[in-house]
Amino acid sequence: MLMMPKCREASRLVSESMDRKLPLFQRVVLRLHLRMCKYCHRFEQQLLKIRQISRHINQHIEHLDTSISLSDEARKRMQSAIKTHSGTF
């Protein structure tokens, strides 16, 4: 009596499998479902893509335009804000 998950449940399991190792049974039924259902398979690929892009953002920001910098005035303001708050916390 193998209960195959419906797409709603499968999509939830796809997401959960990105955060922890699913229990064996769930893992097996999810893989079977994904093999048969192209939309859930696509859903999984897209979530993985979003993850890949999100993780890359931290590297991307290294390529920002280095000619832009804070004005001296802003710099001083921040220094003094840090100084003020350093004592407080």
Binding site: L70, R75, S86
Partner: peptide, 26 residues
């Protein structure tokens, strides 16, 4: 006290790239 010198410009660039408003980014 070294944060502004070490990371100020970098954070500002990042904020400006997303917000497009220098004052708000600061």
């Amino acid at each position: 006290s070294v944060w502004v010198d070490l990371y100020g410009d970098y954070l500002y660039r990042f904020a400006l790239a997303r917000i497009n408003d220098p004052t708000l980014a600061e």
